[in-house]
Computed example of a mutant assay.
Amino acid sequence: MNSIPGIGTGGRITMAHGGGGTAMRALIDTLFLEAFSATPHAPQEDQARLPLEALAAGGDRLAFTTDSFVVEPLEFPGGNIGTLAVCGTVNDLAVGGARPVALSAAFILAEGLELACLRRIVASMAECAREAGVRIVTGDTKVVPKGACDGLYVTTSGVGIIPAGCNISIAAAQPGDVVLVNGTLGDHGAAILCARGDLALDVAIASDCAPLGGLVETLLAAAPGTRSLRDATRGGVAGVLSELAEASAVSLTLDETALPVRPEVVGVCDILGLEPLFLANEGKLVAVVPQTEAETALAALRAHPLGRQAAAIGTVGEAGPYGPSVVLRNAFGGRRTVTMPSGEQLPRIC
């Protein structure tokens, strides 16, 4: 069905589509249910119902996460707010070792939002969920007056199952371990910055937005001793490593020459005085693995489509006299401390 009562095929969201009446019902039935529901015409309850037997068969713990997305612009090279919402949530589950099972999605729609834009975003979410092997099983829709939000906000929550014996933790890194990343740094942050057009940068950079569940399964099969995993979103790799050093009470030494960064991202950072280590990613993870499994883990990552540019970027050591730290070593042997970002380098990136 290509039209929705009250807005038609080329119209916009109105306040009536959040009023609980026939217009809202039509919006839900002809847009959200058609995209997300395996059985669009089945009775719609106020909650999703997940069989416990199937959940218990997958592991011994339930993982649960939630996130909100307020990116501007809503659509950008490499994705949109919908793909960002699905990837962000399934990746938060995956880096805990969990297999994503189900997602919820709540939409705040601004009066005047173009239906065509909303359709593209919802279609992208459905496609990304299928790629990630997860279903969007419940949700909510609200409409706010024009100007109360920038077009569209999305909040997603997800549940997943952690297999027995999987104990990945940000507090588990040990001296001697190796730090890996699965690809180039800062792609999402640089893509959003260029997509805004505020700085007239004529650079083609696509977001790295991608679901990482399959990559994590590949990594854990090759390196079952993997200690820690984190997806490097806001704050970038620097933020993740600062948290990891603090939680594990260790020091981390990074090799600046080993950091994989696209030349286009380096150029944007040089112009604006930014650092790729601090820029957000939406399809990159940081893994800490035992030194004995590092080569096997790196080979497994590089064999996966989302890890072909994987690299070993540093090592874990004992905490120094001043406590946990992250240190960057450059090509000339110089060293400097990498600290936790004090705030967002870029506004509204996710």
Rank of each mutant, 00 (worst) to 15 (best):
A249E: 15
A210G: 04
T257W: 02
L193N: 03
T184E: 13
L244G: 13
L229W: 08
R234K: 09
G197Q: 10
N182M: 05
R262F: 11
I162S: 11
D187Q: 14
A245I: 05
H188W: 08
G225C: 00
A173M: 05
A247D: 14
V216C: 02
G189F: 07
C194N: 07
D231F: 10
G176C: 10
T156C: 15
L212W: 07
I161P: 01
L259R: 12
N167R: 15
T155M: 09
P263R: 07
L215W: 07
S207L: 03
D208S: 05
S228A: 15
L229I: 12
A195Y: 00
A232Y: 01
V143C: 03
L229F: 09
V240R: 12
T155A: 13
D177S: 14
D187I: 05
V203R: 11
G225A: 07
Y153R: 07
T226N: 13
A164M: 04
G225K: 03
A200Y: 09
C209Y: 05
K142W: 13
S228W: 09
L185N: 06
G165I: 06
A200L: 13
V178I: 13
V178M: 11
A204L: 07
A223S: 14
V265T: 09
P145W: 04
A247R: 11
L152R: 02
L212H: 02
P175Q: 00
S169D: 10
G147N: 06
K142A: 14
R234I: 07
S169C: 10
P211Q: 04
C209P: 00
S207C: 06
D231K: 02
G176V: 10
I161N: 04
G147C: 00
V216A: 02
S251G: 15
A148R: 14
